[in-house]
Design a protein around this nucleic acid. Structure first.
Lengths: 170, 170
DNA sequence: CATATTTTTCAAGTAATTCTGAAAATTTTA
DNA sequence: TAAAATTTTCAGAATTACTTGAAAAATATG
């Protein structure tokens, strides 16, 4: 196998892992995702372990989590007992998956929590409480709009998202 | 001070901190931000330390970082030697700040890195290299569009962003 | 310019997260 | 259904990220 190619692969996997960390995603999970994105064929757990030099436990846990996110899927290989995995290759579909999951996991709970905060003070009439209720209300409106946008993106076909984004950019 | 109000404050600060963690932002930094968002008046380092029960070192570092992000600003109080801080209160301006900084800190480096990866293989003609170059190219296009959108948002007045987002939602 | 006040820095300590590896559980095969 | 193959789990180890607190640096005051 070409040396430049192998070096570029390693580089790409390392960079994608670093990017994952910056965005609150576990480094190993991001690296497995990178590996499967550039892998021409599906890989099984042992192949992932060997390529990335990680333990079986970590490989299994992170592969499972990527399946939960909908970023990779298990595929059965004929005449094989082991489970193989392949990545979603369409970057816009990937983006939709991430939008859907982050909304569900991170935005929905904060909306619920902020609503709880606001309820605690909305019947109070002193100046401080009213100010607080107003600020929390503005944040709720904001998170609601973002949440709605992600909801829409998460339900979209990738084909709808690109034109929207391009429009957003003018 | 009203008990419900104080409880709601504490609750809000805790929730905003938890949300920060989910989005790759240091919990204490998010809590300081929450505190300043709901504080009617600017606060100094000692007040932040007392309210959140954190050390001087942590308060100083995280306040400074919030200033770097543009989410809070130092303000001088007449007849005071200590430095006071107040939060940007407009949530859409806050969103623009975050878009601008995350693009600069996290997207720009990954674009540079991916371009490096692609350069390593774009002159290679074997099937694997060509496939790799294609995948990395698609990711670059994608990150480029997202980066452009954030760039636009980061340069915007908040007033432009809300209608765009609402349109995005239909 | 000496003193008091405030801010910054950073080595060491603490907390949170992630990984490892082997045992247990599950699934497949014959 | 027993044996082999595979996957899952989880306690402890390793790593990473964050905080503390005191000393040093910077700034303001008289």
């Amino acid at each position: 196998m070409n040396k430049n190619y192998l070096a570029a692969r390693q580089n790409f996997i390392a960079q994608w892992g670093a990017m994952g960390s910056a965005w609150g995603i576990n480094k190993t999970m991001a690296q497995i995702h990178a590996l499967l994105m550039i892998s021409p064929a599906p890989l099984n757990t042992d192949e992932v372990m060997d390529e990335l030099d990680i333990s079986r436990g970590s490989a299994n846990t992170n592969l499972r989590e990527l399946v939960n996110w909908g970023l990779i899927r298990p595929v059965l290989q004929k005449g094989e007992r082991k489970e193989y995995f392949e990545s979603e290759k369409d970057v816009w579909k990937m983006f939709c998956c991430i939008a859907r999951e982050r909304k569900r996991r991170e935005l929905d709970p904060i909306v619920a929590a902020l609503e709880g905060c606001r309820q605690q003070t909305e019947s109070l009439s002193d100046a401080h409480s009213r100010e607080f209720t107003k600020t929390v209300g503005e944040l709720l409106d904001f998170v609601g709009v973002v949440s709605g946008a992600l909801e829409k993106i998460g339900r979209s076909e990738q084909s709808i998202v690109l034109p929207m984004m391009l429009k957003l950019m003018q």
